[in-house]
């Protein structure tokens, strides 16, 4: 069991309200990712769920029980911190066993569980080392091991991969996803990296200035962004957002087209411009095209494209793939 429900939760630091009234339901076994730019309140929200911060008002239910006033140690949640937060004076074995010791498990049972977790996480050879003698990825595994041994109702991850290098990050991302499939436990994962969010989540909660901008599956957010913020935040490279006459022509304040939904045409097109910087990835080419009166549009062309800096191109947005937004930034049907 690991359902979590937030009911009109708010959080203020002094007179600054960082989380305005917020409702959210997380089902048992879901992998939920909180994503948003720095300072959007996603970590604060996670810490409220963990109990490391007190809510200013509202209610947090865990498994249908009001847990608003429950101390973190009694909420049955496990957390993996960005800094790993391992106990530097304890061996890996003792680090992983610590929650079990706190739960007053018998030493034999503790050892058994630690051995199991260590073998799952490839840490068996490192059990007698101190955290200081491990690499970043290994430390992260120890932190995860410490979280899984206590078999929590839900796991909370606070930007767990941001201290790792790019290659390791991709590996750990897969490992965490696999772990979720094996354990089928609720996981709440905070990140500012929308690629992590898109690849890992069952459900993404996009946060902007403490507000939930949109909740949905990765593809829902990609195909049907509810507002300009989500449209610009989800997807890489970013969606092209155009205001002005082109938007007005479509009865909208802003229109958005993803780089992959723009075709380069030899003849005429909706927009004509000059190629600026182009990025060649082999599988794709990203072209920045400077269009007069519109600005720079990013175009994703598959494979290699033989266009050079300064070449003139015409661009045609794909039919039915143009997103329209009103003056308040909300999506229009």
């Amino acid at each position: 069991m690991g359902s979590i429900k937030l009911n009109k939760v708010t959080k203020s630091f002094g007179s600054t309200q960082v989380i305005p009234p917020l409702d959210l339901e997380i089902q048992d076994g879901e992998f939920v990712v909180f994503v948003g730019p720095s300072g959007c309140g996603k970590s604060t929200l996670l810490r409220l769920i963990a109990g490391l911060e007190d809510v200013t008002s509202g209610m947090i239910e865990i498994n249908g029980v009001d847990a608003t006033q429950t101390p973190p140690s009694k909420r049955g949640l496990a957390m993996v911190f960005q800094s790993y937060a391992l106990y530097p004076h304890m061996s890996v074995r003792k680090n992983i066993a610590f929650p079990l010791k706190m739960a007053k498990l018998a030493p034999e049972e503790r050892d058994q569980k630690v051995e199991n977790a260590a073998s799952v996480l490839n840490l068996t050879d490192y059990l007698d080392r101190r955290p200081g003698q491990l690499s970043g990825g290994q430390r992260q595994r120890v932190a995860i091991g410490r979280a899984i041994v206590r078999e929590p109702d839900a796991f909370l991850f606070d930007e767990p991969l941001s201290n790792l290098d790019a290659a390791l990050r991709v590996n750990m991302r897969l490992e965490i996803s696999e772990l979720h499939q094996t354990l089928a436990t609720t996981m709440i994962y905070v990140t500012h990296d929308q690629v992590e969010a898109m690849t890992m989540a069952d459900k993404i909660v996009v946060l902007n200035a403490g507000h939930i901008a949109q909740v949905g599956s990765p593809l829902e957010l990609y195909h049907k962004p509810a507002n300009v913020f989500v449209a610009g935040f989800i997807g890489s490279p970013k969606m092209n957002l155009v205001t002005g006459p082109d938007a007005q022509a479509m009865d909208a304040h802003t229109i958005g087209v993803r780089p992959e939904h723009i075709t380069i045409s030899e003849g005429g097109g909706t927009w004509t411009g000059k190629v600026g910087v182009s990025e060649h990835l082999g599988s794709d080419t990203f072209l920045r095209v400077n269009v007069d009166g519109v600005g720079t549009l990013t175009v994703r062309a598959s494979g290699e494209v033989a266009l050079r800096h300064g070449d003139s191109v015409s661009l045609i947005p794909e039919e039915g793939k143009v997103h329209r937004f009103d003056a308040d930034g909300l999506a229009m049907q």
């Binding site: 963990a50 140690s73 949640l77 937060a85 106990y87 410490r146």
Partner: peptide, 18 residues
């Protein structure tokens, strides 16, 4: 001493005394 380590202990089920 990083505060996160103390928070980790709390999340691991430690009461103030532990």
């Amino acid at each position: 001493i990083p505060g996160e380590i103390l928070e980790a202990a709390r999340m691991d089920g430690a009461m103030l005394w532990d």
